[in-house]
Design a protein around this nucleic acid. Structure first.
Lengths: 193, 193
DNA sequence: GTCTATAGAATGATAGAC
DNA sequence: GTCTATCATTCTATAGAC
């Protein structure tokens, strides 16, 4: 099995408890200051250890960023796997969208943060396991056709997932946000012209 | 007139040619590396001058970031002003959306970059002239009601504007992107449940 | 408006003790 | 797994000449 064929679950399982603490501390810092604006010192301070301890866990800053991606994308992988089915019936596609939106709302800040930082977003496109995840999601929802309409819909759906972390909706409760977001994305994905 | 009541046009007019060169050089760097990942040295190299010259133009890095916001948000201000009308008829609102989408597509990367970096995005919400701009846009399109439905729609519309810079749509020509994006956002904003 | 030169702090990263 | 101590590099920012 090629290393790139690993699932996010398999990768995430390899992180030690100390590494998980670092990953958890890094995400909100990335969300607030961006990856480029977050230093290892800031992460170390947030965890409550020294920089050297962080370097024992991760050999580079990029390795921490990858860890954040793999850990926080994992719930989305689970949602897609759970809803994936051999037959692309309309109801199977609707169930996948609903499950994805559930997960997005339950993980509010996380998935939005991954898409709203230029460094994280680029890595999301270069990191094979996460690439495959997006391909699975969009091809199941929008089909394999890569026409302009499907491309624009995919881009807006991707952006809409990030909108779950938008300031306009921070104080909506999960149920309300999920209902409204599902309604909007359902229309976006499934409504014919 | 309070300083905060200035338009973006008035502010943008104050920048010297040298400052404009710096602002133009900074945007693609912010898009690629994020604000936090972009140093003054990188900006100076891109302009072709030394750091000291940049510091003569802007006293801090944040002043450059503000300059980028004010310059690149200006076309959106023009679009909103041109389409703004006293009566909130449906056709006036549709005309504003169409004009905004035109401007978004014509400025592809710019508006997306402003919304896809955590630092730029935060400043967009703290900077009064740009705050007023978003309020005008969303209240004209979605009304003054701040219910959950309008809030989610506003957040997704805001994200959809950023989607014009998404990799999925980079190689679509302007006309195609504008048509598809307008169709999708029109439905998002105006379609009742 | 741009340059050279520099100050002082912070950065990513490493070595070696515990 | 964490620490102290340190390295070379880069950072923001300033002073003063042209």
């Amino acid at each position: 099995m090629a290393p790139d064929a690993e699932t996010l679950r398999e990768r995430a399982a390899r992180y030690s408890p100390a590494q998980c603490r670092t990953i958890d501390a890094a995400l909100p810092l990335f969300a607030a200051h961006g990856v480029g604006g977050t230093s290892l010192q800031m992460i170390a301070d947030a965890v409550g250890v020294t920089k050297a301890a962080i370097y024992h866990q991760f050999s580079t800053k990029e390795a921490i960023v990858l860890g954040v991606i793999e850990m926080r994308l994992q719930p989305l992988e689970e949602a897609i796997e759970a809803a994936e089915s051999a037959d692309l019936t309309q109801s199977a596609r609707e169930a996948m969208l609903a499950r994805v939106i559930d997960t997005v709302v339950a993980n509010r800040g996380a998935l939005g943060t991954l898409q709203n930082d230029p460094v994280l977003f680029r890595l999301l496109g270069e990191h094979e396991p996460s690439r495959r995840l997006w391909v699975r999601l969009f091809s199941e929802l929008l089909g394999d056709d890569l026409g302009p309409q499907a491309r624009v819909r995919a881009a807006v759906l991707s952006a809409a997932i990030g909108a779950a972390a938008h300031p306009f909706v921070v104080d909506l409760d999960d149920d309300t946000l999920r209902d409204e977001l599902l309604r909007v994305t359902h229309r976006l994905v499934f409504q014919a012209d």
